[in-house]
Design a protein around this nucleic acid. Structure first.
Lengths: 346, 346
DNA sequence: TACTTTTGCTTAAACGTTTAAGCAAATATA
DNA sequence: TATATTTGCTTAAACGTTTAAGCAAAAGTA
């Protein structure tokens, strides 16, 4: 009852030629006559031949699979990055295996193990929040499997990286807020052990100092950056004796939480307090007031990451200087921090 | 320079036994002595042996890979379903390959082709909005590859299905709104060609009729259910001479868009108009007012779907009656439709 | 003691490709 | 015409496993 797949051998039998000739014909080898090629392709179609990927991968020592590890897929940023990577990789004959670490160190380790076991030709990763120990990534390198990081990277790991300039982004944000007349700017940031959040924090502090604004410890809060935690940390800032007049939140989700608390406390945004998020998630433009945020160029990051990996895979011993690709981000100014523009009324 | 992987043969050479013995030892074959097994495992660890998945997959005719096709991963529902499927499947030794159709028919076809090419042992799918023609799914069946659908399924395709009772959910929602005193209930639904949205629409209509409420064509609108379209369709409803006093939206995203429009028009929710979404996305509980919605039991769906697929894979000719698993959904009543509970003030 | 059974391994083939090497026929070159 | 080159295939080995079949030695049974 079990359907037997048609193999290269079946085609060979029909045409009375060798399986080798069939294989070459299917790969348009120059030493096979046009006539034979045509015949092979015709029969292949007739028999509904589908190449056995496992066999060719085994023989060639290449699986044409690329593993992708992300903290989670349910953010627009990651899902857009993945989509664009997939596009580039598919065009080059690669398929991708997506795994989610859910910000868990253990899950990230497991993911790497299963990807290595599945014999992927390369791995693309964005690190989990929890990750501090890097030995599992070293394992990838030690096996000679190309590794490229994006967004959540790590300097100690000597691998290609694609991301935006987080330090500079913080400067842009702080300076924009100053332009709006803000004087006490708070930052709800990510955990400083994660490089990108560390860079945003440093950028925030340096920009504050540069413009001689008050740089108080209680204005800088580390957070897990979920909606819930955005609410909690915002409340914490509102409980201060001296409230800030602007909040820069390192993620849109947490900014949404913060905005809810501001609304619930009947504080006017941006009149009473300015708010800026990070990531340009679609909802930021639909919320009211719409949230000023930073565009991380997910499309470009996805494409560049994929292209970098392909280069690494194809040029075995390509050891030129590492590819640290830092893109310039873009500040998208919306109602939540724009005092010149009145909030749309109706 | 290229690192040679250690193979079963290398282990065999070290111990002066045959590769076959090594293979059996690693699989705890009863015909191998405990002493040999121990030695093999010790050497395997010493040489850092990693089994070559491609070789064993080829030999066994099983890849231990499962393909998953979803419309998109950036919703909490799908990402949670995937996470739970992964958990179950990993435990059974399967890895998953996730692909996104982005609601596109063509992309869905391509995904199926690449999954078949990758020699997956089974496919789990939730159909794209665009999909009407089912021949690509028939192709999976004709190859004898187990297929299980969840959420977005199709009756014409005779395969296992796991989802919630959409028809019943609509009833629950309508009856809840009636309890709240609503008399003109509108529905912003999905496209009726998609089964789940069709069921929700039918459920809505039947519930309306059952309770002798006005069932007008202009109160029922089909939508792509994005945030943007939720805004547009909500505006369309507000432009009616006779405005509805309750809106049941078939997705939380579109409900968010609708809520924004209501807020922007200074309409009080739930006092002026009640609002209900669908899906229990996390933001629904943080928005203000929080949105009443339906919990789709993503965890249970993920687990059940994975378990069903595993059963199908393991019992080749398991042809018992199809597994149509319709779960009862749960209505989560929040501020947006609860007139008894005052909106939280501070 | 003579046999059957069990234990613990080995041999060899197989999975479906790809590819290096080889060889005869056709074609080009001198 | 004799030799070199190109064309168009074939043969056979290889990729790293798994597994059916087999076989000698050890252990069990009568």
């Amino acid at each position: 009852m079990k359907k037997k797949r048609t193999t290269i051998k079946d085609i060979a039998n029909v045409l009375n030629i060798s399986p080798a000739a069939v294989s070459k014909a299917l790969h348009d080898d120059s030493r096979i006559s046009l006539k034979t090629k045509a015949a092979v392709k015709r029969v292949a179609k007739e028999l509904n031949y589908q190449p056995n990927h496992l066999a060719s991968a085994l023989r060639k020592g290449k699986s044409n699979l690329v593993g992708v590890i992300v903290p989670r897929t349910n953010s627009n940023f990651f899902s857009s990055v993945i989509q664009n990577m997939e596009e580039v990789l598919n065009k080059k004959g690669y398929n991708i295996i997506i795994t989610q670490s859910n910000e868990s160190f253990k899950k990230e380790c497991d993911s790497i193990d299963t990807l290595l076991y599945t014999q992927v030709d390369g791995i693309i990763a964005s690190m989990a929040n929890e990750t501090v120990d890097l030995s599992h990534f070293e394992k990838i390198k030690s096996k000679g499997i190309p590794l490229v990081l994006f967004d959540r990277g790590e300097n100690d790991l000597n691998v290609d990286y694609i991301g935006i300039d987080d330090y500079d982004s913080s400067h842009m944000i702080v300076e924009h807020l100053i332009t709006q007349g803000c004087k006490r700017i708070a930052h709800i940031g990510g955990f400083s052990r994660t490089r990108i959040y560390n860079n945003r924090i440093r950028g925030y502090i340096d920009a504050i100092k540069k413009h001689d604004l008050p740089q108080e410890d209680y204005l800088l809060i580390e957070s897990s950056l979920t909606i819930e935690d955005g609410r909690l940390k915002m409340q914490q800032l509102l409980d201060l004796k001296l409230r800030p007049d602007a909040i820069y939140v390192a993620s849109d989700n947490a900014a949404l939480g913060a905005l809810q608390i501001l609304n619930e406390n009947n504080l006017k945004v941006p009149e009473d307090i300015c708010l800026v998020g990070f990531g340009n998630e679609p909802f930021t433009s639909f919320v009211s007031p719409s949230i000023t945020t930073v565009n991380q160029h997910s499309q470009k990051i996805g494409k560049l990451t994929a292209e970098t990996l392909i280069k690494r895979i194809n040029t075995e011993q390509w050891k030129p200087s590492l590819n640290k690709n830092i893109l310039k981000s873009e500040l998208i100014i919306r109602q939540s921090s724009n005092k010149d523009l009145p909030v749309k009324s109706s």
